[in-house]
């Protein structure tokens, strides 16, 4: 398991691995929105939580198909299935690697970019917290979608259509945490829902994704 995690991280960081793609996209969104919306601080501050969360969500989506597609093409998945590693565990580890290279950097970079959007300082800790707690669900749900579409050539569009509706609850509660935090209200309820979505998907989706992978690889 640890070997798989290390390998996936290595692959992500080496050339052509795709690390930084999500982060760069997130950066572009946060830089371009103020230019598009205009410099009125009030407007920006009001839409900042939503924009930041939408940016993070789309940045996650960008690299989802890499989770399994590359391993499918070069035969790694076919070798992993008969290997002693439980496929459910392998799926969970690959989702974790995806989060470490996408979701975590987003959470770390978000406060800096939030300043560009005039997000009040009181909202910054909650922005980091909501992204740190919410984005693991995005990676896990994404891994499930990627497992379903792994055998489909150019399955990116299908993957997005499958996954985006499942991302909606995380988006709603995540942005709500930031909005309430910025306005100084209690954030407990949406934060609890956000954490519940992450825990629920981490507990159940590895099994669904492993089953989907086995189906995708079966040629009979």
């Amino acid at each position: 398991m640890i070997a798989l995690l290390i390998r996936d991280l290595k692959l992500a960081f080496r050339s052509g691995g795709g690390f930084g793609l999500g982060l760069a996209f997130f950066l572009l969104v946060a830089v371009l929105v103020p230019l598009g919306v205009g410099p009125q601080g009030g407007t920006l501050a009001r839409i900042a939580p939503g924009i930041l969360w939408i940016g993070a969500l789309l940045a996650c989506l960008l690299s989802l198909d890499r989770i399994f597609a590359l391993d499918f093409e070069d035969g790694t998945l076919e070798i992993l299935i008969p290997s002693p590693l439980p496929l459910e565990g392998a799926v969970a580890v690959k989702a974790l690697a995806h989060w470490l290279t996408t979701g975590l950097p987003l959470a770390v970079a978000a406060p800096v970019l939030a300043v560009l959007l005039h997000l009040p300082a009181s909202g910054l800790p909650w922005l980091v917290a909501s992204l740190a707690i919410g984005t693991p669900a995005l990676s896990m749900i994404g891994a499930f979608g990627a497992a379903l579409t792994v055998g489909v050539k150019r399955g990116g569009l299908l993957l997005s259509l499958l996954v985006l509706p499942l991302y909606v609850p995380s988006l709603i509660f995540g942005a709500e945490v930031v909005r309430r935090g910025a306005e100084g209200m209690a954030v407990g309820t949406p934060l609890a829902f956000l954490a519940a979505i992450t825990l629920g998907s981490a507990a159940s989706l590895p099994f669904a994704a492993a089953a989907a992978l086995r189906m995708s690889l079966r040629q009979g």
Partner: peptide, 26 residues
Amino acid sequence: AYAAHADGIKATLSVAENLGFWAAVH
């Protein structure tokens, strides 16, 4: 142990890293 047409080799890893990964998995 199954070996088919595709070998599951990662282009950006070295030979030792590729083999070491599969050894660790097993």
